[in-house]
Design a protein around this nucleic acid. Structure first.
Lengths: 193, 193
DNA sequence: ATAATTTGCTAACGAACGTTAGTATGTCTA
DNA sequence: TAGACATACTAACGTTCGTTAGCAAATTAT
């Protein structure tokens, strides 16, 4: 029995869609826009995909997978909370910088997912955020961190990390790792001398 | 000569539109959606407004005005760079928390502005961001701050401040001022003990 | 060589979009 | 009391939307 693999054209569609969704937003990107970029008719897209939303789902859940996959670097070793924050920041930023367009779509367009995908997405996000909260709580319990509102702190840290998708350019002076190091350094030690 | 003041209904339209634009995004909100929330027909909206985009413009530029207005608290007194960062954070967060819906639209939907409004908007944003950069540079020059990339730092700080629109709820345990204090404290002193 | 698969087309569907024209009805003001 | 104004309506416009049906050619696998 053969498993059919529509590999090439479908990938191209998803790549171009990612760029367009990032630039114009999901709702403001039409299938005709997407087809034009690919040099085909809009109706032809449906030889490869099921629906417009299917593309968005692929982008969002592939990015979610990447974020979770990268987290393995964080939990692999037993170390201090500071070290874990640093490792998490580096891993997280690495995923974002590896695909800034898809990250932008992931962060900004997920609300256009329909159920049950939307609930699945939010559940994964909660899980991911919970891991950051745990590190912060551990750091407070061990006396390594100041006593703070762990959720507040998680939101603040993640907002800084996530924002990198908005300004990172592959040719820039900072490598993804350096960005992660600097961000975690700011979060841990602050701006003051 | 009479100056006509269409005050009440137009305000209502802008308020409801702000909520919808925040929840669904500008492009995914139809004029019929908006009309339904107001209990009228879509065509009736045009007795009060010129176009859908006019509403977006009003929201975006009113928020911009508010951010600049709040900045006066920051530049009014001669003080240390740390103090200025703290004052700026508090002022900035105060504006956001005063209207979380409009802030969300301001941060997420500005790209749907057409020219020349888009260019005007971006110019204002550059101006605003430049003020943060200047404080950071001053703090480095005086030896108060670590030597860092000022733009990188500005982006990181503002991303944390701006993210508050996503989780702040008026009835919460933290006041807007407390949020500003805690955010600036994290930025200045870090999480480590 | 033949069958299956990939890729794309034209034509069209019903629905939704932002918006305009023209009209009617109250309400406030001169 | 007359005119201006605020508010909302019905009907409709031309356009664009996501998507389907049916067909055709090229490529690939058996």
């Amino acid at each position: 029995m053969e498993i059919l693999v529509k590999k090439n054209r479908k990938q191209q569609i998803e790549e171009k869609a990612t760029t367009l969704f990032r630039e114009r937003g999901y709702a403001a990107t039409s299938m005709r826009d997407l087809a034009q970029v690919l040099g085909i008719e809009a109706a032809s897209l449906y030889s490869h995909i099921k629906s417009k939303e299917e593309i968005l789902q692929k982008i969002c859940f592939r990015m979610a997978d990447e974020f979770f996959e990268a987290w393995k670097d964080v939990e692999s070793v037993q170390t201090s909370a500071s070290d874990k924050i640093s490792k998490a920041a580096i891993a997280h930023v690495k995923v974002i910088t590896r695909n800034t367009d898809a990250s932008a779509v992931f962060f900004n367009e997920w609300r256009h997912l329909s159920e049950p995908h939307l609930s699945d997405f939010l559940a994964m996000r909660d899980d991911y955020e919970g891991r950051f909260i745990q590190i912060i709580k551990d750091g407070m319990a061990s006396g390594e961190f100041e006593q703070v509102d762990a959720k507040f702190m998680m939101l603040t840290i993640l907002s800084s990390l996530n924002w990198t998708h908005n300004w990172y350019k592959p040719g820039g002076s900072l490598t993804p790792k350096e960005i992660g190091v600097r961000l975690s350094n700011l979060v841990l030690n602050g701006l003051k001398k």
